[in-house]
């Protein structure tokens, strides 16, 4: 455990440093994951490049039809931001169950994404919002859909010198709602046994599903969208029966592991229950909006 800590002032400087010290360099922001991994000797970087204070990466920007979240935004900022109390509640709900306040005051949403843990709580909501990432690297900027970004447990298509600078997603149409559910052994300070994010849009009639995006964490090598379950629901009446079937399909699509936190079988059962409940919550929320 011995490294140099660099504190670049701009994204360009950061990328230059990463290039100079690659492959032994690693970016660090809030450090809530990186420092633990260093201490547990899981990683041993020779150079840490502190991006926590880079300018322009901590804003929540709202346009007419979209949001852009700076990658350095802290969970606690998401939790307390008024924009996420309506139909984007999934973000608030996911942000508020990550660690304790102490972690949420410093850990960044970008860090959670690039960390690509199968159980990362903030990834399913963004998958359910069909978010894409803005990435800056030596060759300039690029954009990639989040669902293509994470490729496996702890693995992304980010090159070691690239930085995720922001996360963008479209606002939801009318008659939409979102929800996030998490199960763990305790009610706080948990790594998800399973987490589910749902985004439901109803048809104009408000009785059938027009668009459904589901995302499931901790039940597969990476957080995933159960496409069969989503597809099944399109045009179906929104309600217990169809939601339960979607849950069943989602459970079928999951490929959980057994570990010290739960067995694969229990995780699969949870997926079914939680998908159904998350959709039911969305439906209730849409109805409440319309009241």
């Amino acid at each position: 455990m011995s490294f140099d800590l660099h504190r670049p002032a701009t994204v360009t400087e950061a990328v230059d440093l990463a290039q100079r010290f690659a492959p032994t360099a690693r970016y660090v922001a809030g450090g809530t994951d990186t420092v633990i991994q260093i201490n547990r000797k899981k990683i041993d970087p020779a150079h840490l490049i502190d991006v926590a204070c880079l300018p322009g990466m901590s804003e929540i920007t709202e346009t007419a039809d979209a949001f852009a979240l700076g990658a350095l935004i802290k969970y606690r900022s998401i939790e307390t931001h008024p924009a996420f109390r309506g139909n984007l509640r999934v973000l608030l709900e996911a942000a508020s169950v990550v660690g304790g306040h102490q972690v949420r005051n410093i850990a960044t949403i970008g860090g959670n994404i690039v960390n690509a843990s199968p159980a990362a709580d903030f990834v399913p909501p963004l998958l359910a919002l069909d978010a894409s990432l803005d990435i800056t690297g030596p060759k300039g900027r690029r954009s990639v859909a989040l669902r293509d970004f994470i490729v496996g447990p702890g693995r992304t298509n980010l090159s070691p010198v690239e930085i995720v600078t922001s996360i963008r997603f479209a606002k939801l149409p009318a008659r939409s709602a979102t929800a996030f559910l998490k199960e763990g052994r305790r009610r706080a300070m948990e790594i998800s046994v399973v987490c589910v994010a749902a985004c439901l849009t109803l048809e104009v009639s408000a009785s059938r599903c027009a668009c459904v995006r589901l995302a499931i964490g901790a039940a597969s090598p990476k957080a995933f969208r159960p496409e069969q379950a989503e597809g099944y629901l399109i045009g179906k009446p929104a309600g217990n029966e169809s939601f339960a079937e979607a849950g069943r399909l989602a459970a079928e699509a999951s490929s959980p592991i057994s570990d010290v936190r739960a067995s694969a079988g229990y995780r699969r059962d949870l997926v079914a229950v939680m998908v159904e409940r998350a959709l039911t919550t969305c439906l209730q929320r849409i109805r409440e909006q319309n009241q």
Partner: peptide, 21 residues
């Protein structure tokens, strides 16, 4: 949480924050 201190007024875990940051 026993290591909690306030960083610019906000509670954080000082045990996993690099001092250089």
């Amino acid at each position: 949480g026993v290591c909690t201190v306030l960083l610019d007024g906000k509670a954080i875990n000082s045990c996993i924050l690099l001092a250089g940051q």
